[in-house]
């Protein structure tokens, strides 16, 4: 459903992605793993149009996203949940969710979005409890739920999650990842960027390992879990050696 070929991306004159080829299959969870500065976040920004890029990103086999603005891409229902959540601090939980509908709602008019809101509340009952509370006052985990919930309001055809586990307690993270799997079961393809490679590989179907702006390893997530190169570099296990403390 998303086919990326020879993608280069730039921060000013610095080339952050150096020719990336990736394919995202419909209905599955695809993850990008890699160390800091490998280009995972940059790749998401390149897809959503937030930075300058060249190459080709074809969505749904006919729409070329290179050259399109972030607004245009969001209207294609490609939704990017950024690193650090970025929820609207001065809006309530419910208002944050409402704003998420802009991609299909349009600036004016009054299209109903009760169904979407209901299903987000069903997925995250915690958000319903806190519906009137202002965004800034939520805990980190709740903010992440809200960021994902807001993205679901946009009726995503592709959901891109950047570091959803960042700064959250392990018990909250495992809960959140169960929800991500649940969302995927609804038929929404997910592109997941995660520092926590072990966790990401557990819930993903397919995985790419990025390093210095290039794809180093790719394959089925269950194969990568046992790949010695991945284990050594990203899962903190030294192949054939005992693990030092």
């Amino acid at each position: 459903m998303l086919k990326i070929a020879n993608l280069h991306a730039y921060y000013g004159s610095i080339e952050a992605l150096k020719g990336i080829d990736i394919e995202i299959a419909p209905g599955v969870v695809t993850c990008l793993i890699g160390s800091n500065g490998a280009g995972k976040t940059t790749l998401l920004k390149a897809i959503s149009g937030m930075i300058r890029r060249t190459g080709s990103i074809v969505f749904d086999e006919r729409n070329e996203l290179i050259g399109e603005s972030p607004t245009r891409i969001a209207r294609r229902s490609i939704v990017h949940v950024p690193e650090g959540r970025h929820i609207f601090p001065g809006l309530s939980v419910e208002e944050n969710l409402e704003v998420g509908t802009i991609a299909w709602h349009g600036f004016f008019g009054r299209k109903p979005y009760e169904t979407e809101k209901r299903s987000v509340f069903d997925l995250f009952p915690r958000l319903e409890e806190r519906r009137g509370q202002l965004g800034w006052s939520l805990s980190g985990g709740e903010q992440q739920m809200l960021a994902i919930g807001r993205a679901l309001m946009a009726r995503p055809k592709l959901l891109m999650l950047d570091e959803p586990s960042m700064g959250l307690a392990p018990v909250i993270v495992s809960d959140l990842f169960r929800k991500i799997v649940e969302i995927n079961k609804l038929g929404i393809p997910i592109l997941l960027v995660e520092q926590n490679a072990r966790l990401a590989l557990e819930i993903s179907d397919f995985a790419y390992v990025l390093d210095q702006g290039r794809v180093r390893i790719e394959g089925k997530a269950k194969d990568l879990r046992t790949d010695p190169r991945v284990q050594e570099a990203y899962l903190g296990r030294f192949a054939g050696k005992t693990q030092p403390n």
Binding site: S48, M50, P70, T71, I73, A74, R75, V79, H80, V81, P82, H86, I87, F88, P89, G90, L91, V99, G100, I102, A103, F107, R150, A151, A154
Partner: peptide
Amino acid sequence: QDKYAAELLGIP
């Protein structure tokens, strides 16, 4: 409140 998030959601 957050221009970056707004653009990602498709707010012009």
